[in-house]
């Protein structure tokens, strides 16, 4: 039965369109869509059941108190450190993103040019992709330990004074930012490299003939041409940055808090579970808003090939 349906569908596809009325054609199209939709349904049901429904539960529960509907969980959030966590999350995200973009661009620009040891370098750059987030977090906590840390031993070796990296909030966040840059830059570099290497070499040659220097070529040719890919990569990574959890949890624990560690800290106790739900709803709202902007700006549908 299955194969005969297909036969008909394919015939409809290839058949003389004038022999079918508009309504008939629409009906065939519709039947064909239903058939192919069946292939996608298991995956869709899976994500609806295990992502959409749970997300709705969290939002719903965040408005529930002991006596039914309440906003109390939200009113209580600031006393659990919401504002600080928000600012810290924003700082880490934006900071890590900017460093990532800058270094990834440098890597991609280097990789499109020929040089000795290119293969070795491109392999080396991949390494962080193969190292688990928790492993990199642990290694960076060894490197930046105030006492016995390798960063400080390097500083002392250079005749500088050691630094207590986890003494202030900003330096703690700086360590998280740096670790995150290290772990995720290869990904951004690969994306940008894909964009750069798809530019036709003739573009540069023409500019060279016209006498444009390498800086001018970068500003007037490279940058505008990879700007779309760059902005999409940035926006996609931006969401992941907002979601960082394991890295700050292992490196700095709960001091200072970021949104995810705030949620996790309060989730563990049933007394504050609804507080955790409220914080989770805030995070969800920010991310959904952000991804709607991404989809509107980037137009996901035009870019999937």
């Amino acid at each position: 039965m299955e194969s005969s349906t297909i036969e008909k569908l394919n015939n409809a596809d290839q058949g003389d369109p004038s022999s079918l009325s508009r309504g008939q054609r629409f009906k065939k199209e519709f039947k064909k869509d239903i058939f192919y939709l069946i292939f996608a349904i298991p995956a869709l049901v899976y994500v609806i059941g295990l992502a959409i429904v749970p997300a709705i539960t969290v939002v719903y529960d965040s408005f529930i108190g002991r006596h039914g509907f309440t906003l109390a969980n939200y009113y209580a959030l600031p006393s659990y450190g919401l504002y600080g966590a928000l600012i810290n999350t924003l700082l880490v995200s934006v900071g890590a993103l900017l460093i990532q973009l800058f270094i990834a661009l440098a890597i991609a620009m280097v990789l499109v040019k020929p040089f000795k040891g290119k293969k070795a370098f491109s392999t080396l750059v991949i390494i962080p992709l193969g190292i688990s987030t928790v492993v990199s977090a642990f290694v960076f906590s060894i490197i930046f330990q105030a006492v016995g840390g390798y960063a400080n031993s390097a500083l002392v070796g250079l005749g500088l004074r050691p630094i207590d990296w986890f003494y202030t909030n900003s330096s703690s966040l700086g360590v998280v930012m740096f670790s995150d840059f290290w772990k995720n830059t290869p990904l951004v570099a690969l994306i940008l490299y894909g964009g750069l290497s798809s530019l036709p070499p003739s573009l540069y040659e023409a500019a060279s003939v016209d006498g444009a220097g390498s800086f001018n070529r970068f500003v007037h040719i490279t940058l505008p041409n990879i700007a779309p890919i760059m902005s999409i990569a940035l926006l996609v990574r931006g969401v992941s940055e907002f979601n960082i959890f394991a890295l700050p949890l292992v490196i700095i624990g709960y001091h200072p808090l970021i949104l995810n560690t705030l949620i996790y800290e309060n989730y563990s106790s049933s007394l504050t579970r609804n507080i955790s739900y409220a914080a989770a709803t805030v995070l969800l709202a920010i991310i959904m808003l952000y991804s709607i902007i991404v989809v509107k700006l980037g137009g996901a549908k035009d870019h999937v090939r």
């Binding site: 992502a51 969290v58 969401v239 955790s276 739900y277 989770a280 969800l284 991804s291 991404v294 549908k301």
Partner: peptide, 21 residues
Amino acid sequence: NKLIVFLFIINMMPGLVIAIP
């Protein structure tokens, strides 16, 4: 296209938020 955007948004949902329920 609509389904792709839908899946894309799923990909962005914060893990911790979904993991708890």
